[in-house]
């Protein structure tokens, strides 16, 4: 149990660490980092290499945005097996629809309730 959490921490932290390293070294904006990591996740999944990381680290591999890329790729692959060419178009978004819709709806609700505030330090 504790070992599992240690693995989650180590792997999840490492992915974030790599993200921060990229930000520092290349001055990439956060949007570019997210795009890059989604693509990396999808490509790694396409080679069948993401599953072992998830089995090893659980949420450490699914919580980082690379896990979102993995779901997109995984969804596409499974849908292609089931539905053929239609799956190419439906698979990715079906697998991630929960996350995207949740993010949009919560953003909608909270944006109606709250307003952005000036940064103070």
């Amino acid at each position: 149990m504790l070992l599992m959490y240690l693995k989650v921490f180590l792997v999840g932290g490492l992915i974030c660490f790599l993200g921060q390293l990229l930000i520092i070294k290349t001055n990439l904006t956060s949007a570019r980092i997210l795009v890059l990591f989604v693509c990396i996740g999808a490509v790694v999944e396409a080679f069948g290499l993401y599953e072992p990381i998830v089995n090893f680290a659980g949420a450490g591999a699914t919580v980082p945005i690379t896990g979102f890329g993995r779901s997109l790729a995984k969804g596409a692959i499974e849908a292609v097996k089931e539905k053929g060419i239609l799956g190419v178009l439906t698979g990715g978004i079906t697998a991630t629809s929960g996350g995207i819709t949740a993010a949009v709806i919560f953003a909608y609700i909270f944006a109606l309730i709250f307003s952005s505030k000036t940064k103070k330090y």
């Binding site: 930000i23 904006t29 956060s30 952005s116 505030k117 000036t118 940064k119």
Partner: peptide, 8 residues
């Protein structure tokens, strides 16, 4: 960027 965006 938006003020509440969590970037450095």
């Amino acid at each position: 960027f938006p003020l509440e965006l969590g970037n450095q």
